[in-house]
Write a protein that binds this DNA or RNA. Structure first.
Lengths: 161, 161
DNA sequence: GAATCTTACTTGACATATCAACTATCAACC
DNA sequence: GGTTGATAGTTGATATGTCAAGTAAGATTC
């Protein structure tokens, strides 16, 4: 069987008869599908704890910010998210008592957000399952390959900025 | 500056003070962020044509299926999507006359879906802009690096099956 | 110091994804 | 040939993400 007629693994997954039209296209589709699979892992790991993956990300960002908290849009930026979504997500996190918000006194346009002790307790409970999900995500790769993947992904983002 | 104290590019993007807790975690976060950036490219490219990225994916899958069409759940599988979402997406695609559906006569549980000529005309118009977006997504990489990325992403998915 | 610009949200509308529960149909069994 | 189980799809509720448009407050300009 010549290499020219061998289907790529991704082509088989998609049951495509035709080869990918370009390397860029195959890389893009592979990236989107791999991210979906990894996201799903996270979702499954978090689901029993009653928190979604984006919510977990927000809490972790706020924990990282510590005592000073962060204003809403700063959280959105670190999530690659637009502003409208973050406001409503904070509403839900606040309703669940994982986050506390208050209008900043320095600049009254800003709303500063903080993790509550309950939020921190939740994070402490779920950190381990997320770490397991992360380990599972790269279990097909050697450590060297995982580092190479990280490097290539960095280059993709650098090229798009 | 010693290598031990250098922040990774991703750490800088996220303005994280602490290093990633594991290679798996950095790879996972990098994957999710890169996919977001790439998805955004696609969205921007398609937006002027009045079609969303998931809708474009459905149309391409149906075009690939040709004259025989595909039943609804088969499309969902190739999208990594759950069934409930696909029904409503098909509703919208049909409302826009890009897709035609009919109850299968072989198995009356199935609904077969086909691209319409209008759908094909739309695809013909947008294929080029998607190809540009794909090329942009990997412009930070050499061809060899892009192929390596494809290989590593395949291994990630293989490890999670 | 009033008008204008910019920033930081906030709200409304819609597309997409998820799960759970329901309907319709086919297939297998006795 | 009627029950039983599996499959295909739909519907409803909720979470998230998108854009567009609005509000409120700080910054700049004249």
């Amino acid at each position: 069987m010549s290499e020219l007629t061998t289907q790529s693994p991704l082509q088989q997954e998609l049951k495509q008869r035709k080869p990918f039209r370009s390397v860029g296209h195959e890389a893009t589709v592979g990236l989107l599908r791999s991210a979906d699979v990894v996201r799903r892992r996270w979702t499954e790991a978090l689901e029993p704890h009653g928190i979604t993956a984006p919510q977990y990300n927000v809490l972790r960002i706020l924990r990282g910010a510590g005592r000073e908290g962060l204003c809403t849009l700063e959280v959105a930026k670190r999530l690659i998210e637009r502003a409208p979504g973050i406001t409503r997500m904070m509403d839900r996190l606040e309703a669940r008592s994982w986050v506390r918000r208050e209008r900043s006194s320095d600049d009254r346009r800003e709303v500063r957000c903080y993790v509550t002790p309950q939020g921190e307790a939740l994070l402490a409970r779920v950190d381990a399952v997320v770490e397991e999900a992360d380990a599972a995500s790269i279990r097909g790769l050697s450590t060297a390959e995982a580092r190479e993947l990280i490097r290539l992904l960095d280059k993709v983002r650098a090229g798009l900025r």
